[in-house]
């Protein structure tokens, strides 16, 4: 058998140069993939879940519904919209508290009767906004929130709401019975003092996180 002659040095160099050119062209070529297939997502099984953006949207809906009880006019809506936008954009700030305060001020401004029916609804919506915000604050919008993870915050919400609604009902009954306001102030001050003592005990006992 006749063996083919080995490639000459210039031929080898030419082939190598062509290969290098080809690789260089690929290197500087388009950065997008040519297969057109999107990369798959890492698979994870956490049971039933909802996207965080759904909970965030639910929080905004609840906040708007709550505001609808007390807001009158465009300025009020502009203020509420601004607070909600800041609450979503900067989730780490004190914005739920600001929203709650704003709702209180708007309640005052609205001139509604104390303990009217919408006040009970407002108590629930304001609290729910704060709870949902605490859950989704700082989370990526596309994150998968396990439904079971909502059980703890919602159970505390239910507990606090039942107490608060009972308190409001008592307040409504009391004010309906024409009890003088100083008595209410004493009751409220007692409640506040109890909360303050609880806070103080936890912090004084080194209960701070870390």
């Amino acid at each position: 058998m006749t063996l083919p002659p080995p490639a000459t040095a210039p031929a080898r160099a030419g082939a190598r140069a062509r290969a290098m050119l080809a690789r260089l062209a690929v290197t500087v070529g388009s950065g997008t993939g040519t297969t057109g297939k999107p990369l798959p997502t890492v698979g994870a099984t956490i049971g039933r879940w909802v996207p965080v953006w759904v909970v965030t949207a639910a929080m905004l809906v609840v906040a708007v519904v709550g505001a609808a009880f007390v807001v009158q006019g465009g300025i009020g809506w502009a203020v509420v919209g601004g607070i909600l936008a800041v609450m979503v954009r900067f989730p780490e700030g004190p914005w739920p508290g600001v929203y709650t305060l704003t709702m209180g001020v708007l309640l005052l401004v609205s001139g509604a009767e104390p303990f009217a029916g919408r006040v009970f609804a407002l108590i629930a919506t304001v609290h729910l906004v704060a709870v949902l915000h605490s859950v989704v604050a700082g989370l990526p919008w596309a994150a998968r929130l396990q439904l079971r993870a909502l059980r703890g915050p919602l159970s505390r919400f239910a507990a606090a709401q039942s107490a608060a609604q009972a308190l409001a009902t008592v307040g409504a009954l009391v004010t309906g019975a024409a009890v003088t306001l100083p008595w209410l102030a004493v009751l409220a001050a007692g409640g506040l003092a109890a909360v303050a003592v609880t806070l103080h005990l936890h912090l004084a006992a080194g209960a701070g996180p870390g």
Binding site: G93, P94, W95, P96, G97, V98, Y99, T100, L101, M103, G104, V105, L107, L108, P114, F115, V119, L122, I123, V126, H127, A130, F157, A159, A160, Q161, A163, A164, L167, A168, G171, V174, T175, L181, L184, A185, A188, A189, G191, L192, V195, L199
Partner: peptide
């Protein structure tokens, strides 16, 4: 944040004599 909202409303209610404001801030404190 919760202390600000709940406590602020409670104080406002006390100052203005509006028990409904206290009730509005109570859930956050609880």
């Amino acid at each position: 944040s919760w202390a600000l909202g709940g406590g602020g409303l409670a104080l406002l209610g006390l100052v203005l004599g509006r028990a409904d404001l206290v009730a509005l801030g109570a859930p956050l404190l609880l």
